Amino acid sequence: MKDKTRETFELFIEKANLLEEKTFVKNSIANGLNLNIQFGSPRQIKHNISDREFIESVVVTVRMFYQDNDRISFRKIASLLSDPSLSQTFIAFFNERRKELNVYLDSFGEIQGVWDGKELTNRNIFDTFVYGDIAHTNEEKRAVYLKWKELGALFILIEYLFVRILMDVVLLIVEVADAMKLELAGKKIVYT
């Protein structure tokens, strides 16, 4: 295996392990994410999302896998797949998971609709929180985020969906890291 490939896989695994150890991730896996809607007067939407500080710490690490300018991003990892020492099984697994991630992000979650001319896909919800508030303050995404915050109970629902999307991304990252561990150890990857 090329040194660059090995080093990048090791860094990917290190950061994925860091994600698994985050309190927010551990709590979400152990307790699940719950949304409670109470109809009547007053109508209430509540969720069990933990402290924002925990979410922000997860986002900072997830961003390394998501943004193309980091060497452990899914796109940069894809560029390493030409390493002749990588098994065809790993290459197929990685490409399938990367495609699965993009299809998931580009699809609608529980809310299907359009906001300010943009579809409310999982990617748009994720990007609005990440780039409009938590990790950046992109002007356009920030404006959308602030409008969403004014929606009251509906914002709580959108925030809940963001956290679910975030956790789904984390779980996929961890799954890819596990496959990388097997590949580095020369063990066969079995996937369906």
Score class of each variant (00 low, 15 high):
104 Y>C: 01
68 D>L: 08
108 F>L: 02
96 E>G: 12
113 G>L: 01
97 R>A: 09
75 R>N: 15
117 G>Q: 10
94 F>T: 03
113 G>C: 13
83 D>F: 04
108 F>S: 08
73 S>E: 09
121 T>E: 09
68 D>F: 03
87 S>V: 13
69 N>F: 10
76 K>N: 12
65 F>K: 04
89 T>G: 05
101 L>R: 08
73 S>N: 08
97 R>D: 03
83 D>R: 05
68 D>N: 14
83 D>Q: 12
81 L>E: 09
95 N>V: 01
77 I>G: 02
68 D>A: 07
81 L>Q: 02
105 L>T: 07
83 D>S: 05
104 Y>G: 02
72 I>T: 01
66 Y>S: 02
85 S>K: 05
85 S>E: 15
112 Q>I: 13
115 W>E: 08
110 E>A: 07
119 E>H: 02
66 Y>C: 00
91 I>H: 01
120 L>Y: 13
102 N>G: 13
80 L>E: 00
113 G>P: 04
121 T>Y: 12
79 S>W: 06
121 T>C: 03
97 R>K: 14
117 G>S: 03
82 S>P: 06
102 N>E: 12
96 E>T: 12
75 R>I: 11
87 S>A: 08
75 R>T: 13
76 K>L: 09
97 R>I: 10
91 I>W: 00
113 G>A: 11
92 A>S: 15
79 S>A: 05
99 K>G: 10
88 Q>Y: 07
78 A>P: 00
109 G>E: 06
105 L>C: 01
107 S>P: 15
119 E>K: 07
65 F>R: 09
94 F>N: 01
114 V>N: 07
87 S>N: 15
108 F>I: 04
122 N>T: 04
90 F>Y: 09
71 R>D: 09
89 T>I: 15
117 G>K: 11
97 R>F: 06
116 D>P: 02
66 Y>D: 11
112 Q>H: 07
94 F>C: 00
86 L>S: 03
72 I>W: 00
80 L>P: 04
74 F>K: 05
87 S>F: 06
78 A>V: 10
111 I>L: 05
100 E>N: 11
65 F>D: 04
71 R>I: 06
121 T>G: 12
87 S>C: 13
97 R>Y: 10
68 D>E: 13
111 I>K: 02
71 R>E: 07
65 F>Y: 05
86 L>G: 01
92 A>P: 04
